[in-house]
């Protein structure tokens, strides 16, 4: 009898922790494991909302010190200018080291062949530049903003995801990941991709951005823009997207739900101009983030799995 009285009183005096606090504490723990276990980590930063969240978490993890690793961006040259400006400003503001490497340079140096045609994208070429950058700086861990709710192959990936010397992911030989004991031991030349917000959903990220009062690039909010209407999707009207006779050029009020390469990131029609409005819109949305806006994932059922095996994030 006395036991149950005790248990009840424990439960009553202590409030259940909020899920955002739990997710935040877990992500900070993971960031600190990276700093503690690796010699030369890097944080992959694109100026998108997930990597903005990562930078914020890293600041919290190491305050009052600076983030003990550089921010790295693989720039396809086809990124939204708003995201690039945000990237540069943030790095300056927090005094972080920013390393940018360009897909364009890799294409020239290696004589890579770009995709052509109406849905051509440099998205898959990013992998080459990423692997070169890892080699150049001898990064042993790269922190990324991927989430397991994004896509089916990602739902199976570890938080510490081991990559061999070719950057490849082997889904059948993943290290068991138990409790919160992350095994980051590697040989020289190998590296680990680390995903601190693996357990966050899209909505969690938005709720967290709001709670923490984090500013975002303007393209995440509703604005008028000239777009290409193609196969039911709205793409940014830009010279980097090869035009097609079937394309219609339209002006719409839109926002972007993800901020990737312009060639494979579609806009959604929206009037949501504030964080609250965006959250309300996503809450009732019946279509998933990648399904709505990512053209790269829809090519085959295993598109992401295949890219990951090749070294992509």
């Amino acid at each position: 009898m006395s036991i149950s009285v005790n248990e009840a009183s424990v439960g009553a005096e202590k409030k259940a922790p909020d899920y955002l606090d739990q997710l935040e504490a877990e992500a900070i723990y993971i960031m600190r494991e990276v700093a503690g276990q690796f010699e030369r980590p890097a944080l992959l930063f694109s100026g998108g909302k997930d990597s903005i969240t990562l930078v914020h978490l890293a600041q919290k993890a190491f305050a009052p010190g600076k983030i003990p690793f550089p921010l790295v961006h693989v720039d396809t040259g086809h990124n939204f200018i708003e995201a690039i400006e945000y990237r540069d400003e943030l790095a300056k503001k927090i005094g972080a080291k920013l390393i940018v490497r360009y897909v364009e340079d890799t294409i020239k140096a290696k004589g890579l062949k770009e995709q052509t045609g109406k849905n051509a994208s440099r998205n898959w070429l990013q992998t080459f530049t990423l692997l070169d950058t890892i080699e150049e700086f001898e990064f042993d861990a790269c922190i990324g903003g991927a989430r397991r709710d994004e896509e089916k192959a990602r739902a199976k990936e570890r938080i510490f995801s081991f990559r061999d010397e070719f950057g490849q992911w082997d889904p059948k030989r993943q290290r068991p990941e138990l409790w919160n004991l992350f095994n980051g031991r590697i040989q020289k030349g190998e590296n680990v991709r680390v995903f601190p917000i693996s357990n966050w959903t899209e909505l969690d990220v938005w709720a967290y951005l709001k709670r923490e009062g984090i500013a975002l690039p303007s393209i995440y909010f509703a604005h008028e823009r000239e777009l290409i209407l193609r196969d039911g999707k709205l793409l940014n009207h830009t010279p980097v997207i090869e035009s097609d006779p079937e394309d219609q050029i339209v002006t719409r009020q839109v926002r972007f739900r993800t901020v990737g390469d312009m060639t494979c990131t579609a806009a959604v029609e929206s009037s949501a101009a504030t964080l609250d409005e965006v959250i309300a819109e996503i809450t009732v949305s019946r279509i998933s983030e990648r399904g709505e806006t990512r053209i790269d994932d829809q090519q085959t059922e295993a598109a992401m799995e295949d890219r990951k095996k090749g070294g992509y994030f």
């Binding site: 397991r148 709710d149 739902a155 199976k156 889904p171 059948k172 993943q174 693996s198 357990n199 959903t201």
Partner: peptide, 8 residues
């Protein structure tokens, strides 16, 4: 199902 999968 081969590997541990997470759903939210």
């Amino acid at each position: 199902t081969i590997d541990v999968a997470y759903k939210y």
